[in-house]
Design a protein around this nucleic acid. Structure first.
Lengths: 256, 256
DNA sequence: CGGCGAATTGACGGACGTCAACTGCTGTGG
DNA sequence: CCACAGCAGTTGACGTCCGTCAATTCGCCG
């Protein structure tokens, strides 16, 4: 595995606090794999042997029941997933599938649990990462239970606008049928929601979205810092500066 | 504070692994308080200074947006809540309110974070607790996004039956309007759902529920171990036996 | 050119929220 | 002791949101 890839993993808040030696131990038995789009990495109910780290591409975390299925989160690099199952050595509650061609690093769960037991700073970092994941899910449930479909879409658009730099026009990062599942609706219903949201100063042109009258859209969306996380899931600077002090309020990442 | 109360806290998986000294440090500045029913302990957005431990009574975790509100979880003793916010020293994403008269222990967040840094075993226990909370929320989202109202009610009843010992008739632990909010519907709609579920061999008599034909109800509910957690949130035995080995698969507790 | 899948649109029905009226229980005060 | 207020729960009527089925268009790729 290339050392550049290892460096990217090292730059994650999770692994930044470890000693070089501990980091070597954890990544020693690890392997990097490239997967094509649409590959199922993990099916819900499977026992989990590895912690996954998405280095490149994108991955969806989903679940199904009774012939229905839904996407719980879409991950972008660099982020880890199924940490919770690894920590508890339990089976997966979600499936994981690549959306596009992806580079994924797989770390031994057993080695990771050992490292936690031996290195307090590392297990603190794990607890912080899990806390961030937990809070991401709290936001997701609030979004789901408190808002209607059109409101969820409106807030999604505002979040995307901010995450992509703040320009009034941007493009949707995923297929619309995928977005529909993330927002908890059917593709048909999302299509209608896009049509309706035209009335609130939004122009849709295929995957291109332009928010022509932001204030009007905001009056519909009523974005809330306690629900919407406008800071990107991994604003991971690669430098070492952040390694020196305790991060205090990363609240994002939904990827277990 | 009575030492019997401290013993109950000590018996939690979270605190069982600590040394006596570390436990004294964490509980040193702690205080136990009795709150009447309906007391708001914490409002979403507040900064969080304490880890809360519910010793007696019951507490609801809720959230609101745009004049709507919903209950995300109902806690019963003994369980901790808002751990994630304490770990990150961040503000609360949920409100907490007593449902009945409750005894609640409040532990200094700062002391807790210090204990994590100094004691690897403890921070591992925190990570495990958080993992359990995370998985509880994953179940909640799956329940919410994949099932309809009647299905959620059916599964709720089956879960209650099992948690209360398995007898065919049991009683609802909360007011129905509260249950409605937990299940993500209006009280009126829940009332109708109770009326409908009669067709599936369930008899409702005020707060008394009897599942007359379990197989019929199960065919409607299709309970799933990857969504429904039929083991109670805190099967905390008070003995020391469990303290000896690593717990391997506690998957419950939604209380942050 | 032909075919496949994503996306859109329309028609329809069911699930769910809202408003309102009514019941039954409980606690309070005359 | 009873009258009454207040609240949980239920029931009905109605409208809206949303899912389902089907037909059609569009773009992409073989």
């Amino acid at each position: 595995m290339r050392s550049a890839d290892l460096d990217r993993v090292r730059s994650l808040p999770l692994f930044g606090v470890m000693s070089d030696e501990a980091f070597k131990n954890v990544t020693g038995g690890a392997f990097l794999q490239k997967f094509p789009a649409g590959t199922t990495l993990l099916t819900e109910g499977d026992t989990v042997d590895f912690l996954y780290v998405l280095l490149d591409g994108s991955v969806e975390l989903g679940a199904s029941w009774n012939d229905k299925d839904t996407i719980l989160a879409v991950l972008r690099p660099v982020s880890t997933f199924i940490l919770a199952a690894v920590v508890l050595d339990a089976d997966a509650l979600m499936s994981a599938q690549t959306i596009e061609r992806s580079d994924i690093l797989m770390l031994s769960g057993e080695a990771l649990r050992r490292a936690m037991r031996e290195d307090a700073a590392f297990s603190v970092a794990v607890a912080q990462e899990l806390s961030g994941c937990y809070r991401g899910l709290v936001r997701a449930i609030k979004n789901q239970k408190l808002r209607g479909g059109l409101e969820r879409l409106a807030n999604y658009l505002i979040t995307q606008k901010i995450r992509q730099g703040g320009a009034d026009t941007f493009s949707l990062p995923h297929e619309k049928r995928l977005l529909a599942s993330v927002l908890g609706m059917t593709p048909e219903n999302l299509s209608r929601a896009f049509a309706s949201i035209t009335d609130y100063g939004v122009v849709i042109n295929g995957p291109q979205v332009t928010i022509a009258r932001p204030s009007v859209l905001e009056r519909l969306a009523k974005p809330d810092p306690l629900i919407d996380n406008h800071t990107p899931p991994s604003a991971a600077p690669t430098g070492k500066a952040q390694r020196e002090r305790w991060p205090t309020d990363r609240n994002q990442r939904t990827g277990s």
